[in-house]
Design a protein around this nucleic acid. Structure first.
Lengths: 343, 343
DNA sequence: TTGAAAGCGCTAACAC
DNA sequence: GTGTTAGCGCTTTCAA
């Protein structure tokens, strides 16, 4: 541990010298302990600790052609859903000695490709990426290098990529079908920015599909696209019900934040939910259970998705037989914010 | 871009050969473009793109003794506060070409030290760490290597470390003082696990200090420590008011999640807030504005903290004159969940 | 402005 | 079981 801040960090050769062995043995002591005599090994560990030696990862990577680095590309860390996935993925990989590089694209496809470029330059050996709507070059780069990857969170049946996630379109069809079964025939949608976002696009498609099966469609003036904030949810509900009729009896929101915003505004406007209006969310945030009325929404197990993505990559890295991933399910959680269509 | 997945990735020497220059010139073209003839440079860029060459970071790090890596150590990504800080810090550093390694300690000091060890082995050149309550070896390791660091989020006046954050103790004293000024004399506290957590410990000290200045103290049966969930907030409020008297007129919660849980339970129990009971939180979550009644809480600008931490480290790395950081403020946001002590 | 050559710190054959 | 040696892919003097 003694070492002045002026001198450079110790190297394997310093440990070797102090322990009276060669650098090869120092390396073995740490990477293949069983190949070193216990007493020699202990001596080396003691000396290494004494000197505060940490094996330089760049040197190791260069010599062994292994970086023990993986990457995960997400839109932003500022969203519970992605944070939960990354947290789980990282916990799993780090338990296997793999360091995770986290790249945030800020929902920008070019930034996403840039981040992957940087990660590849750093030598990631595997990659998890949220969303399959990416610049083609992104997948080309990783394929060219033979880096195993998995698309996380999204999962569409026709995807050419290995996926660990759920089918957004099917989930929103299921949700819409539930509302149709309650008798609703006039819908509004409040959703997040859809450009370059396959999840949002799939959700909208799911809604439209389910409606079309009943010969229904969304009126353009009943579709609101904007930032996923309480404020946008409120504002959209106000515009939606404030304008000239006909008015929807059910509002499908792209996520819980928008739905709670809508719920808050409905309350402020004195609208009876679910008597006069049904509202749904997506994500099942912890607070969804406690809004008034409690929010009908859908739940996805993001921790399980993160773990599964990590396991998939670990298998690919270990040349293990690859367990074909079945899609995750989004569960419908029916609470008080939805009810039969008003008369 | 053409390259079979069987062959190894191209190296600088391949680019050099194809461009008819030496590897030194390839290196210069990317790292000191002004030292290379424009036409030669363009040729190199074209060839590099054609070959899909990405400079191997391990090789570069070894030769240049620069990794362009920084680390950030947080308890967990699963918490808006830390996610926001990391997001901002990473955005800033990545704009300067620095890759950020994110380590999560899961609130465990030994894991924290381990994470830092791994980061140092990878060659981080700077480190931001949440919380100053750490194993001494953690600070020893980074000092021994002369790695600049900053304690993020926490800031105590007497800290021996460079800090970018706010004074938790002062913040909770201010909050408690506000309640005292409203006439409250009997308090309860619902807080997060305090072991090994300097922020929570400081918050409790802040409350106790302010109370002591009025000759008051917390009754042991009015202090609840547990996970920061809605459920623990609810359960604690129930226990607190369900037991034999005397009952507090004000409940200070360690964060908004606990406070909202308490608010939900108070509502369920038919207790008038703030008429019969005042409740406060901390963090000013977006939802805090919309609870009923809206939550009195404190706000800290976590994005600004993340940015400031990044700027501090950037300055240290650039040998810039170090701007002494002044502490951030936690602002009291008074809303409807607090009022004068009931009669 | 460019090239030659010597490493950066470590691992992996191959000998012993 | 351990040492010797030859790189891994890049940057950086130093010359030219």
């Amino acid at each position: 541990m003694r070492e002045s801040r002026t001198s450079r960090p110790p190297r394997a050769i310093d440990v070797a010298a102090a322990a009276g062995v060669s650098t090869a043995t120092v390396s073995r002591a740490f990477n293949a302990p069983e190949k070193v005599l216990p007493e020699v090994r202990d001596k080396i560990f003691a000396v290494a600790a004494e000197l505060g030696w940490l094996p330089n990862a760049a040197g190791a990577a260069l010599a062994s052609r292994r970086t023990w680095l993986a990457g995960v590309l997400i839109p932003t860390l500022d969203h519970d859903v992605f944070a939960a996935q990354v947290n789980a993925l990282q916990a799993r990989l780090s338990a296997s000695g793999i360091t995770v590089l986290i790249g945030c694209s800020n929902y920008d496809l070019d930034e996403a490709a840039d981040q992957v470029r940087v990660m590849l330059a750093r030598g990631i050996e595997a990659l998890a990426v949220v969303g399959e709507l990416q610049r083609p070059e992104l997948f080309e780069m990783i394929s060219a290098r033979g880096v195993p990857y998995v698309v996380m969170y999204s999962h569409s049946p026709k995807s050419p990529h290995p996926c660990v996630g759920f089918d957004n379109q099917a989930a929103f069809s299921k949700l819409t079908r539930y509302l149709l079964d309650l008798g609703h025939r006039s819908f509004a949608v409040i959703h997040q920015p859809s450009s370059d976002n396959d999840r949002v696009l799939a959700r909208l498609a799911g809604i439209r599909d389910a409606l079309a099966s009943e010969g229904l469609a969304l009126r353009p003036q009943h579709v609101f696209e904007g930032q996923a904030t309480f404020e946008f949810g409120r504002e959209s509900l106000r515009k939606c019900l404030g304008g000239p009729g006909p008015h929807p009896t059910a509002i499908i929101c792209g996520n819980d934040t928008l739905a709670i915003g809508a719920l808050i505004e409905a309350r402020a406007m004195g609208i009876d939910v679910p008597g006069a209006l049904s509202i749904t969310g997506f994500d099942d945030l912890p607070i969804a259970e406690f809004t008034s009325p409690p929010l009908t929404t859908m739940r996805v197990d993001n921790v399980a998705i993160g773990k599964a993505a990590a396991d998939y990559l670990l298998n690919r890295l270990g040349q293990q037989p690859i367990v074909p991933r079945d899609a995750f399910e989004a569960d419908l959680i029916v609470r008080g914010s939805t009810g039969p269509a008003g008369s």
